[in-house]
Amino acid sequence: MEKLIIATKNKGKINDFNQLFKKFGIEVVSLLDLDYSNDIEETGSTFEENAAIKAETIVKQFNLPVLADDSGLEIDLLNGNPGVYSARYAGENKDDKANIHKVLDELKGQSFSNRTARFVCVLALAQPNKSTIFKRGTCEGIISESPQGENGFGYDPIFYPVGFSRTMAQMTHEQKNEISHRKNAMTKLENWLNTKSERR
């Protein structure tokens, strides 16, 4: 694998993946570099299915390896919701504040012991004529009773990671990246790449 497409236009993600793959001498290009504007409909019922849909759709177009990710929040008391609908839980507008408000309403009156949750990130690496590889990372935590902090995005203001007395939105970008679900998924991917390079 000499060249890889990262299926995102998020500059933060592009930078993170660029640093990872540089160690293995793999050139990274993103959807920004390719000026790719097709809207891929994520119709899967799991993070794995949605990540695979993105990766495998783009592989067919460019015939190059593609890495895609899908992520979201799972709340145990809500049977794993919002899950794959995390970005649009309160409606198709993808409104972070409305999503947070809906989650807090659904957990109203519940004790901390009933507010267990996790952020999930699944990376799907699709390659021409090969099976797609999946790496899943999680970050366990508790849902707060009200939003705290101004940093981050999505559900960060109501998520206390296990072992911390502050929400993800009260952490610096660097602190969050050390424990995040995406970091954990990337670590598993890096371990897999190391194993592959050792076999050469």
Rank of each mutant, 00 (worst) to 15 (best):
S111D: 05
G109R: 15
A126M: 05
E145K: 09
Q110P: 04
F119H: 06
V122T: 10
G109I: 14
T132R: 11
I142N: 02
N151E: 03
R115A: 02
I142Y: 09
T132E: 03
L123D: 03
N129G: 04
F119P: 03
K130I: 04
T116P: 05
I142M: 08
K135S: 02
S111V: 03
E145G: 01
F112S: 08
S131A: 12
F153M: 12
A126K: 07
S146P: 00
N129P: 04
G137H: 10
N151T: 01
F119G: 01
K108Y: 03
E106C: 04
C121N: 13
S113V: 13
N151D: 01
L123I: 13
K135R: 01
A124F: 14
C139K: 07
K108P: 02
N151P: 00
N114M: 11
F119M: 11
F153R: 14
K130G: 00
R115W: 05
F112C: 04
D105G: 06
F112T: 07
V120Y: 12
S111P: 00
I142Q: 02
Q110C: 08
T116W: 01
N114W: 04
L123M: 13
K130M: 07
E140G: 03
G141I: 06
C121E: 07
I133G: 02
A117W: 03
Q110S: 07
P147V: 13
G109A: 13
N129F: 12
S111Q: 06
E150R: 15
I142H: 03
V120C: 13
G141N: 04
N151G: 01
F153I: 13
A124G: 10
L107V: 00
F134R: 07
V120A: 10
T138N: 08
V120R: 13
I142L: 06
E140I: 01
T138K: 11
Q110H: 06
P128V: 12
N114H: 11
S111E: 06
G149Q: 01
A126G: 04
K130P: 01
P128T: 10
E140R: 01
V120M: 08
E106N: 13
N129Y: 12
A126Q: 03
L125V: 07
E145R: 10
S144T: 06
E140M: 07
N129M: 09
Q110E: 05
Q148N: 05
E150P: 03
